[in-house]
Design a protein around this nucleic acid. Sequence first.
DNA 1: ACCAACTTAATGTAGGTTCAGTAGGTTGGT
DNA 2: ACCAACCTACTGAACCTACATTAAGTTGGT
Lengths: 202, 202
Amino acid sequence: MPEQRRYATLLAKGEDRRQRILLVAQRLLVRNGWRNTTLGQIGREAGVSPAGLLHHFESKEQLLHAVLEARDRYDDARRDSSGDVIEQINGAAARFQQVPDLIGMFIVLLIENLDPEAPLRGRILHRYQAAIEQISEGIRRGQRAGRYRTDVDPALKAVEIVAFLYGMETSWLLDPSIPLTEVFKEYTQSLALQLTLPADGH
Amino acid sequence: MPEQRRYATLLAKGEDRRQRILLVAQRLLVRNGWRNTTLGQIGREAGVSPAGLLHHFESKEQLLHAVLEARDRYDDARRDSSGDVIEQINGAAARFQQVPDLIGMFIVLLIENLDPEAPLRGRILHRYQAAIEQISEGIRRGQRAGRYRTDVDPALKAVEIVAFLYGMETSWLLDPSIPLTEVFKEYTQSLALQLTLPADGH
DNA sequence: ACCAACTTAATGTAGGTTCAGTAGGTTGGT
DNA sequence: ACCAACCTACTGAACCTACATTAAGTTGGT
């Protein structure tokens, strides 16, 4: 039996549990925030004791990083800087329905790490700026292609769009009954109107 | 000497300290979240021991409620349902500069109270819905007055606008260097464009 | 026999709260 | 003017609970 296969069953079981823990941790993180989520809660829902949990992750902090890395892998997998801005926004909207458990993680961590000394602050700020940059670039591309008016400042508009997206996440976390699709549609229409019409000086 | 004036000097000192505690608590609440703010921190910055703090407020939770009530009084004082939506949004923008310490309190508490069982969840949801209602009504008023197109659904647009406002708070909390004024101006222009132009069926 | 995957029972610590006491200003009577 | 009773505004130490983490032991597959 090859070295790699020794304990294959056990290791598979462990990996399974590990994934389950990550999923539960992710969900509770969004619902309760990270600081207010205890290893006991995660463990209970994942079927292990707090100590058992630390068999898979060496500390609570490291578990958080594992959750973040899983999330980053997901994001990286579907980053597409090809489509135009409207499509990017619609993509974000679709994700609300497709993977509701992932929505809000970023916002929750952002709020929990506002302090300059907060451990995740750098990482989060970086991600925010990357989002701005991605949207800006989408707008610039549209302008170069002649699809968008050139008198709209891409950087400003990007800040606005990202604010709208964050705000929708926040609103939806609070009240999932809001008419997501319609609001997104409304906003993208409004955007299109402003981005594609010629200026009229009133 | 009238009954109310007994111990006037002492009571004034107490009231002074009380106000100072409220201010510090409010600031730390936004920076660190409520759960991550300790009575020790608040006390240190307000010049009392944790125990001394509880002489003025009977518990940490009650202190939070006092902060909320102070905030509500402020909000109620400047509620104006008279101006149109654009003006309301500009008013919100102005508050970022005027009273930066008040910005973000709502968002932070919102995120910390997402859970259905969370103590402030009801209060926060109610306030969100009130904000939506206020904006909706502003749009409807504009429509009745013939200033706005009637083919924009006020409820939908209100959700969008509130999302933008929350998102701007969040973004600004994370990165205060964003060009606030310009983004607000950009957004209100975009809004005006959509709300006041006749429909073109493309 | 060995190793992963646990469990239960400590351990340590942070933080809210309680308690007993101190300082010093206030009041009302003398 | 002075004093006793009373009050507010605290402080420091002790208390208690909730957690994260550690230690030591158990189980069951390979």
